[in-house]
Amino acid sequence: MPEFQETATDDSDVTLDITGVVAGGDGIGRQESGRVVFVTGAMPSERVTIRITDERRDFARGEVDRILTPSPDRVVPPCAFRIAGCGGCEWQHIAPHAQPGFKRDLVVDALRRIARIDEPNVADCVALAPQGYRTTVRVAIDSEGRPAFRKSLSHDLVTVDDCLVAHPTLAAMLCDARWPGAKEAVLRVGARTGEVLVDVKPLPDGFATPTFFHEEAAGRMWQISAGSFFQIRPDGADELARLVVDALAAHQVATVVDLYSGVGLFAGALHERGFDVRAAVEGGRFAAADARVNLEGVCDVIECDVAKWRGIPVDAVVADPSRRGLMTEGVATIERCAPRTVVLVSCDVAALGRDAKLLVAAGFALDHSTPLDLFPHTPHVEVVSTFVRL
Rank of each mutant, 00 (worst) to 15 (best):
G227P: 08
G219M: 07
S225W: 03
A217T: 03
K183Q: 15
R134F: 00
S225D: 04
E215N: 05
T136A: 12
A171H: 01
L203R: 14
D118P: 07
V137S: 03
V160H: 05
P204G: 10
E119D: 15
V200L: 06
M221I: 12
A123K: 01
G227E: 10
L111C: 11
G190P: 03
G194N: 07
V165T: 11
T135V: 12
M173S: 02
M173D: 01
R178C: 13
D156W: 14
T211D: 15
V126M: 03
S152V: 12
V200Y: 00
A148C: 09
H214D: 04
L111H: 03
A172C: 11
I224R: 00
P147A: 07
E195H: 09
A182F: 06
T193L: 04
L170C: 05
G206F: 04
V139I: 11
L170F: 03
T136D: 01
Q223K: 15
L157G: 07
G132T: 01
V160Q: 07
A172G: 13
R113K: 14
V158W: 00
A218H: 07
A191L: 05
M221K: 15
V189K: 03
T211L: 12
R220C: 06
A171R: 00
D118H: 09
C175M: 13
E184V: 12
A148F: 05
L164P: 03
G219V: 09
A172L: 13
R113M: 08
F149K: 05
G227K: 08
R192W: 10
F149Y: 10
T211F: 09
